[in-house]
Design a protein around this nucleic acid. Structure first.
Length: 481
RNA sequence: GGGCCUGUAGCUCAGCUGGAAGAGCACCUGGCUUUUAACCAGGUGGUCCGGGGUUCGAAUCCCCGCAGGCCCGCCA
């Protein structure tokens, strides 16, 4: 059974065509965007304009009618008078034009008796017929599933997400502007990779018919951007969609956006400075100082603290003196399973479990045990650690950076260690990337790198606690009919 | 993977101690020359998520399934 509104409106389209009116014309030339007129209304007063937009409200009042027109999130009122518009067009409006339709109208910018900025129409055209009744904005769309599956309805009827995704676009724009201003070049590296790397994660597998080879969707673009540093660039970045074949929850989506930046001759301290300055400049550009997140305030104007991971663990009673047996007991208590006991890995896992959730105000956690990643340079003062940082905000990991490992022989060894972990059953261990080792053998300068989760940054800057709220089309199970 | 919750008109929701499917808005018809959630009068509209069961009778109770949300587990 077809929807009643669809049947009725489809019939109207048919009638329009019978009368020689095309309900979906090719263009509708406007003189101004609605927002421009609203922003500079006094300048436009008394002038003739042509505007277009979707009808959110249509109020017939005998021989008068008022329409709320919206375009790009901005509203202006269309004012139709029988005597100004003429009988034919007025009747057309009444018979064929409904809420949800797009119209074009021409007329003088005025204010009505109630002071509402309006265009007093002397001409009106239907420029796109909607075949469904637009739900009322007053009630909005509340059903979360509808909001995600039909995001356009969410954007059309709920103000908050419309503005939120505008902000997300601004965040990405500011990110680019910031890095461009620092001399970084925006690069594009492969999404389809024969060997995946740069993170601990399960990949999506695909097949390249032309080569008859299995490929992977990237889990990170790290190893390719570093090849570009080998290639001679000193500052590169990429905003990349990465793919990780893992669970979907409030902070994870299988497809997500990451920005990675690599900077030759710099180290992890420089990258922390860069990260902090970038986030603060984005927040400033958006006029954001403090955000309420998970019930607590985050102040983006204060300096980001830097804490050593081992110091944070020590505050929880896990120190150098804690012996391996005690740590193994703790792993069991927290139900953490490692393919094989390695102290450094265990400490990294315990940190996530014990400390992570409490890191609310921005803090760089630095100097991780060396077993936590194979891509990072050993610490200049302690061979058991690496020069790594993770930025935690709101209890989430927001960024991850290193003084990049550029010693090809050590890189080879670390990849071998990962291969061993893989054979022991660690599905997320890194793959051995011989081509990347080859690149390092040609020489990569000392380099600092960082990756920042764009979705999570958007969550933090907008106070949204679910990643689905900041991804336009979050992954959902396909609906079968 | 485990627990809790949700699914009723186009939208927002009520009905849930079993007994004739409802409201507001939207939509349609009529009225109205300053409305803006317009108003007034009348009207149309339902696979009560799907399947099975209990019962004289199920939107309501039971079982299975689907989809979504939250929490936990797992995981960047």
């Amino acid at each position: 059974m077809e929807r009643k509104d669809f049947v009725y409106r489809t019939e109207l389209v048919k009638k329009l065509r019978e009368e020689g009116v095309e309900p979906y014309p090719h263009s509708a030339k406007i003189t101004h965007e609605i927002g421009d007129i609203v922003d500079r209304s006094e300048e436009f007063m008394g002038k003739k304009v042509a505007v277009a937009g979707r009808i959110y409200g249509l109020r017939f009042h005998g021989k008068l009618a008022f329409a709320t027109l919206r375009s790009n999130g901005r509203d202006i009122q269309g004012f139709f008078r029988y005597d100004v518009l003429g009988e034919k067009k007025y009747k057309f409006l009444k018979k064929y034009v409904q809420r949800g339709d797009f119209i074009w109208l021409h007329g003088e910018v005025i204010r009505t008796k109630r002071g509402e900025l309006s265009v007093l129409a002397d001409d009106v055209r239907l420029i796109s017929k909607s075949l469904y009744d637009l739900p009322h904005e007053w009630f909005g769309i509340g059903d979360v599933e509808t909001r995600y599956r039909q995001r356009y309805l969410d954007l059309l009827l709920n103000r908050e997400p419309f503005e939120l995704f505008w902000k997300r676009a601004k965040i990405v724009e500011e990110m680019r502007r910031f890095l461009w201003s620092r001399g970084f070049l925006e690069m594009e590296t492969p999404v389809l990779q024969p060997v995946y790397g740069g993170a601990n994660a399960k990949p999506f597998k695909t097949h390249v018919n032309a080569l008859d080879r299995d490929y992977y969707l990237r889990i990170s673009d790290e190893l390719y951007l570093k090849r570009l540093i080998v290639g001679g660039y000193t500052k590169v970045f990429e905003i990349s969609k990465d793919f990780r074949n893992e669970d979907i929850d409030t902070t994870h989506n299988p497809e997500f956006t990451m920005i990675e930046a690599y900077w030759a001759y710099a180290d992890y301290n420089d990258m922390m400075d860069l990260t902090e300055e970038m986030i603060k400049s984005i927040a400033k550009a958006l006029g954001i100082e403090k955000v309420n997140f998970r019930g607590k305030e985050i102040d983006f104007t204060k300096p980001f603290r830097r804490e050593k991971m081992l110091d944070l663990l020590a505050k929880r009673g896990i120190t150098k003196e804690t012996d391996d047996e005690e740590i193994k007991t703790m792993l069991e208590e927290y139900n953490i399973k490692l393919p094989r006991y390695e102290r450094g890995l265990a400490l990294g896992k315990l940190f996530e479990r014990v400390c992570e959730a409490d890191l609310h105000e921005p803090v760089f956690v630095i100097d991780h045990p060396k077993e936590t990643t194979p891509l990072c340079k050993l610490h200049r003062n302690d061979p058991d650690l690496v020069e790594r940082f993770e930025l935690y905000v709101g209890g989430m990991e927001l960024a991850n950076g290193y003084t990049e490992l550029n010693d090809p022989m050590l890189q080879e060894k670390f990849f071998k260690d990962e291969t061993e972990r893989r054979t022991l059953g660690d599905e997320e261990a890194h793959q051995y990337d011989a081509d990347f080792v080859e690149a390092l053998r040609w020489g990569m300068p000392p380099t600092g790198g960082v990756g920042i989760g764009v979705d999570r940054l958007t969550m933090l800057l907008t106070g949204q606690e679910s990643i689905k709220e900041v991804i336009l089309f979050p992954m959902l199970a396909p609906k079968e009919e």
